[in-house]
């Protein structure tokens, strides 16, 4: 029966795999993937260092300010909404958990520590990835496939300096600021649900607990995380767009779409992985 089977990809039957090949095939595939992965990692590292070096070259200020406006200022509304409801849900759930132990007075502590140490930096980074990171990949990807990046090269304008460095600068500025904003609104959200809506906690107690339970280290650790996330998001999103034309799974507009999806998914995964790593280092 087997002799009657025709390989659709190789109808002539030339180059068929022998038994030895079949054993080595999985290892070949793993090896090929590993080499590709190492290559990509190397390329991404060089990409990141060149882009960071570009931050300190002339004529960057205006472009960086424009990106701060796009990544930072235009994300304020969505961050405010998400953080308010995160804080409110946190206040609501925590209140009913704490009240079982008669510890509802610790609501401020729980909300503040959860937000400042973890939820603030992580959710801010994920929200910026969704809003600005995806746009970053799509914009750079379209510039790539329409030869605009090649045009920069021919004009002796370094595309990394012109396109990527301002986005990294803007992310480094915007992420900590938006994280701080997220923390503040989130704490206020906890106050709204725990104090105003449920009325189970005294306002003074809530703010006293927030103030007394937060150390400066909690705040700085949160900022350190947000800076790490800023580098991850800006690098991953820019890299995916910049090399959208090198994708092997698709071409043109479809490649830009897939690059955008990859950028968002990879950024979110890396944010959570980095969160664990950074927390374990800082704790």
């Amino acid at each position: 029966m087997a002799s009657n089977t025709i390989d659709r990809n190789n109808p002539s039957g030339t180059g068929r795999h022998g038994p030895a090949d079949l054993v080595s095939l999985p290892f070949t595939a793993i090896g090929r993937r590993s080499i590709r992965w190492v290559n990509n990692l190397g390329a991404a590292t060089i990409f990141l260092f060149l882009a960071i070096a570009g931050i300190f070259r002339p004529k960057q200020l205006i472009k960086a300010v424009q990106q701060v406006y796009f990544i930072g200022a235009r994300s304020v509304t969505i961050i405010a909404l998400v953080s308010l409801f995160t804080g409110m849900v946190l206040g609501l759930q925590s209140y009913y958990a704490l009240v079982k132990f008669g510890a509802q007075g610790a609501l401020g502590t729980l909300v503040a520590l959860s937000l400042v140490r973890e939820l603030g930096p992580v959710l801010t980074a994920i929200m910026i990835t969704a809003r600005a990171g995806s746009a970053m990949t799509a914009e750079i990807g379209i510039q790539r496939i329409s030869e605009q990046i090649d045009a920069l090269d021919t004009m002796r304008i370094d595309p990394l300096r012109y396109l990527i460095s301002p986005r990294i600068t803007a992310s480094l500025i915007s992420f900590p600021l938006l994280t701080a904003f997220y923390d503040l609104i989130g704490i206020f959200g906890g106050y709204v649900s725990g104090v105003l809506l449920l009325g189970g906690v005294n306002a003074g107690t809530y703010y006293y607990r927030v103030q007394s339970s937060l150390d400066l280290k909690d705040v700085t650790d949160g900022f350190i995380k947000s800076i790490v996330f800023a580098v991850i998001v800006s690098m991953v999103c820019s890299y995916q767009g910049y090399f959208a034309h090198m994708r092997t799974d698709s071409h043109g507009a479809k490649a830009v779409g897939l690059a955008t999806t990859s950028a968002v998914v990879l950024s979110c995964v890396l944010i959570l992985v980095a969160d664990y790593v950074v927390t374990s280092l800082l704790i």
């Binding site: 510039q143 329409s146 030869e147 045009a151 021919t154 004009m155």
Partner: peptide
């Protein structure tokens, strides 16, 4: 090399204008 490329300019088939 930079001086060589500085002498050049390129007009793309698809124009490659910044949209």
């Amino acid at each position: 090399k930079s001086s060589y490329f500085a002498k050049m300019s390129y007009m793309f088939q698809g124009n490659a204008l910044f949209d």
